[in-house]
Amino acid sequence: MADQITLYTSPASPYSHAVEIALAEAGANFKKYYIDAKNKPEWFVSKVNPVGQIPAITYGGPDVPPDQPSPESVKLRESTVLLEFITELFPGAGLLPKDLVLRAKARLFLEISKSKLLPAWFGTFRKGEPIENLFAILEQLQAMLPPTGFVVGGYSIADAYIASILSRADIIFENNLNASGWPDDEGARILETLRGPRFVRLAQYKQDLFERPSFKSTFDKAALTEKYKGYFGTPGALQSY
Rank of each mutant, 00 (worst) to 15 (best):
I131K: 11
A12L: 13
F125T: 04
N176W: 11
N178A: 11
A37L: 12
A203E: 04
N49Y: 03
A160L: 04
S217F: 15
S180D: 14
F90R: 02
D170M: 06
Y228S: 02
G94A: 13
E174F: 05
L108A: 12
G149K: 00
T58H: 01
D220H: 00
L134N: 11
Y228Q: 01
G233M: 15
Y205E: 04
D99M: 03
A37E: 12
Q4E: 12
S180Q: 13
P146F: 04
L7H: 06
E211Y: 02
D3R: 12
R103Q: 11
G27Y: 07
A179L: 10
G230E: 04
L238G: 09
A24F: 13
E211S: 01
V200I: 13
E72G: 07
A188W: 09
L191R: 08
T124P: 14
G230A: 03
F173V: 01
L194E: 06
F210H: 02
D208Q: 10
Q142V: 04
T234F: 14
Y33E: 09
S73H: 00
D170T: 06
L96F: 08
N178I: 07
L76F: 10
S73K: 00
L118V: 13
K206S: 11
W121S: 13
V101S: 14
Y8I: 06
I86D: 11
Y205P: 03
N39L: 02
S167K: 00
W121H: 13
L89T: 13
S73T: 00
K40S: 10
T9I: 07
E192F: 08
S73C: 01
A163C: 05
F85A: 00
A222N: 02
F125W: 10
L7D: 07
R107K: 00
D67I: 04
H17I: 04
Y59D: 12
T234H: 13
S214P: 07
F85S: 00
G27Q: 06
S240M: 08
Y33G: 04
E129V: 11
P11S: 06
G61M: 00
P65D: 06
I162N: 02
S70W: 03
E111T: 15
L23F: 04
L191F: 14
A22Y: 08
Y33W: 09
N133Y: 09
Q207F: 14
N176A: 10
V48M: 01
A160D: 07
R212Q: 09
R126Q: 12
P50A: 05
V152N: 05
D159S: 03
K31N: 09
A2N: 14
A104E: 08
L117V: 05
P197C: 12
L95T: 11
I172V: 10
Y8R: 01
A12S: 13
A12W: 10
Q142E: 10
K216Y: 06
F44E: 05
G61A: 01
A28F: 10
L134M: 14
T58R: 02
M144F: 11
F210Y: 03
G233A: 15
G187P: 09
D208W: 08
T9L: 10
N49F: 05
A179T: 08
R107C: 01
T80I: 14
Q142K: 02
D220C: 00
A188P: 09
S16M: 09
S113H: 04
L82H: 03
Y59I: 12
A120S: 14
T58P: 05
